[in-house]
Amino acid sequence: MRDDFSRGEAVGGIFWLCLGALVSVLLEVVYLDAWVTLPGGASLAVPWTVVVAFLFNLVLSRTALLWTPRTWAAGMPLWVWIGGFVLLTFWVTVTGDQLVGANVRSLVLLGAGVAGGGWPLVAGK
């Protein structure tokens, strides 16, 4: 781990990772219900954002561990991602617009995001 940066730089780095987590969860939820039309006119659900959630949260947590050895601080982007997912889930009560679908793909997205972000925090660098 590098240690030639100030505490302010570390806080700033974690902040930007948290902001990236918020943007990520919004895009992953919006594009979760993507469908591909096959050459016979049939449609196929392609929840590619599940893979993106796993990999991107993995990168966020590993990058946060470069800024701090404290697991709770390195886990902030993951907690922000989870908080964003919960906020988007309950957004329907605020605006009436359902962003997170009531289906198994949404649960798989949540599981993939938590698994990807939690893996580096549990396994270490």
Results as ranks from 00 to 15, higher is better:
Ser6Glu: 03
Arg7Gln: 02
Gly8Met: 07
Gly8His: 03
Glu9Trp: 06
Glu9Asn: 09
Ala10Tyr: 02
Ala10Lys: 10
Val11Ile: 15
Gly12Cys: 04
Gly12Met: 09
Gly13Trp: 06
Trp16Tyr: 12
Cys18Gln: 01
Cys18Met: 09
Ala21Gln: 01
Ala21Val: 06
Ala21Cys: 04
Leu22Ser: 13
Val23His: 03
Val23Cys: 03
Val23Glu: 00
Ser24Thr: 13
Val25Glu: 11
Val25Arg: 07
Val25Ile: 14
Val25Thr: 11
Leu27Asp: 01
Leu27Gly: 11
Leu27Val: 09
Glu28Asn: 15
Val29Pro: 05
Val30Cys: 01
Val30Asn: 04
Tyr31Val: 11
Leu32Met: 07
Leu32Trp: 04
Asp33Asn: 15
Ala34His: 14
Ala34Val: 14
Ala34Cys: 01
Val36Asp: 04
Thr37Trp: 01
Leu38Lys: 13
Leu38Met: 15
Gly40Val: 09
Ala42Pro: 05
Ala42His: 13
Leu44Met: 14
Leu44Glu: 10
Leu44Pro: 04
Val46Gln: 06
Val46Arg: 02
Pro47Ile: 13
Trp48Lys: 04
Thr49Ile: 08
Thr49Arg: 01
Val51Ala: 15
Val52Arg: 08
Ala53His: 12
Ala53Asn: 08
Phe54Arg: 09
Leu55Cys: 10
Phe56Cys: 00
Phe56Asn: 01
Phe56Ile: 11
Phe56Lys: 05
Asn57Leu: 11
Asn57Thr: 11
Asn57Ala: 02
Leu58Tyr: 15
Leu58Asn: 05
Ser61Ile: 14
Arg62Thr: 13
Arg62Pro: 00
Thr63Asn: 02
Thr63Arg: 14
Ala64Lys: 06
Leu65Ala: 11
Leu66Phe: 08
Trp67Met: 14
Thr71Glu: 03
Thr71Met: 02
Trp72Tyr: 14
Trp72Gln: 10
Ala73Trp: 13
Ala73Arg: 10
Ala74Glu: 03
Gly75Leu: 06
Met76Phe: 13
Pro77Val: 08
Pro77Tyr: 05
Leu78Ala: 09
Leu78His: 12
Val80Asp: 02
Trp81Gly: 00
Trp81His: 02
Gly84Pro: 04
Phe85Ile: 06
Val86Trp: 01
Val86Gln: 00
Leu87Pro: 04
Leu88Phe: 07
Leu88Trp: 05
Leu88Thr: 02
Leu88Gly: 05
Thr89Met: 08
Thr89Val: 04
Phe90Trp: 12
Phe90Ile: 09
Val92Ser: 14
Val92Asn: 12
Val92Met: 10
Thr95Asp: 05
Thr95Pro: 04
Thr95Cys: 06
Gly96Ser: 10
Gln98Glu: 13
Leu99His: 06
Val100Lys: 01
Gly101Pro: 07
Asn103Ala: 12
Asn103Lys: 10
Asn103Glu: 06
Asn103Thr: 13
Val104Gln: 08
Arg105Pro: 01
Ser106Gly: 07
Leu109Thr: 05
Gly111Met: 05
Ala112Phe: 02
Gly113Thr: 07
Gly113Arg: 12
Val114Asn: 10
Val114Ala: 10
Ala115Cys: 11
Ala115Trp: 10
Gly116Lys: 10
Gly116Cys: 06
